[in-house]
Amino acid sequence: MQKEYIQSLPKYITLCERNYLRALKLLPEESLGNSRELHLGAASYQIRIDGIARYTTDIAVVQKQQISAHLDDFALSVRLYHDAKVAEVIHHDFHQRIKPSYRYPNPDMHHKDEKYQLNAFLADWLMACLESGRVPLNWDVNNGLV
């Protein structure tokens, strides 16, 4: 008989805490609808603020430019919990909410630990953006004098 998957909560919370700190560095000014464009390699991404509440901020991470004909664009919905200082992927590619774990096999072929894997992917993506990403700047070199 196969054992049921049990997620390591300390490992998961640590991952989400690190994602929170990394995400804060990339966020645009916190106002509903504000966005920031990022370039990473040949791909272009947008981080957009979709919702602001007292203790949470919802952001969307959307790929704007396809990297390859063999790879689909991706979109993540991430919720930042400011009171707990964690960030967690709540949707991916506009699908339904992600469960903490799935029985395997399942009709939709989700991995047993899909929620952890998506948050680990977010961690890798945030690190890549912080280390190698580029943000186009709109500087007014004349300070509005011309």
Rank of each mutant, 00 (worst) to 15 (best):
P107L: 10
D108V: 02
K3H: 07
I67M: 10
Y102C: 04
L15A: 07
F94N: 10
I47W: 08
E88Y: 00
P28I: 05
D72R: 05
G133T: 13
V62K: 15
Y104M: 01
E37F: 11
W125C: 02
D113N: 15
S35E: 12
L32A: 03
S132C: 08
E37T: 15
R97C: 03
V135A: 09
L122W: 04
H110K: 12
F94A: 05
Y116W: 11
I98Q: 08
N138P: 00
V78I: 15
N142P: 00
E131W: 06
K115E: 04
V86Q: 11
L26H: 04
L24G: 05
N106F: 02
K25G: 09
H70G: 01
Q2C: 01
I47Q: 06
C129D: 04
A23C: 12
H92A: 12
L15P: 05
G51W: 07
D140V: 05
R134C: 12
V86H: 04
S101W: 01
H111G: 02
A42V: 09
L21G: 00
N119E: 08
L145C: 03
A128Y: 01
E37S: 12
S44I: 12
V86D: 04
Y5L: 14
N19P: 07
Q46T: 15
Q117P: 01
A23R: 00
D108I: 01
A123S: 14
D93T: 03
S31R: 15
E29A: 14
R79E: 11
E17N: 11
H39D: 13
F74S: 07
D108F: 06
D58S: 14
H110P: 00
T57Q: 10
G133D: 14
V141K: 11
C16W: 01
P100G: 02
L126W: 08
F94E: 04
L76S: 02
I47A: 09
I47L: 15
L32E: 13
L24E: 12
H95Q: 10
T57S: 11
Q63V: 05
D58R: 14
Q96H: 08
L38R: 14
F74R: 09
M109H: 13
K11H: 10
L32C: 04
N106R: 03
I47Y: 06
G51M: 07
M1C: 07
N142Q: 08
D113W: 01
V78G: 09
R134E: 15
M109G: 02
D113A: 13
C16N: 13
Q63K: 11
D83N: 15
N142D: 10
A75P: 00
L130S: 08
Q66R: 13
I98R: 05
K25Y: 03
L80S: 03
L118V: 00
I59R: 05
G133A: 14
W139F: 10
N19D: 13
K115F: 04
S132M: 11
N19L: 08
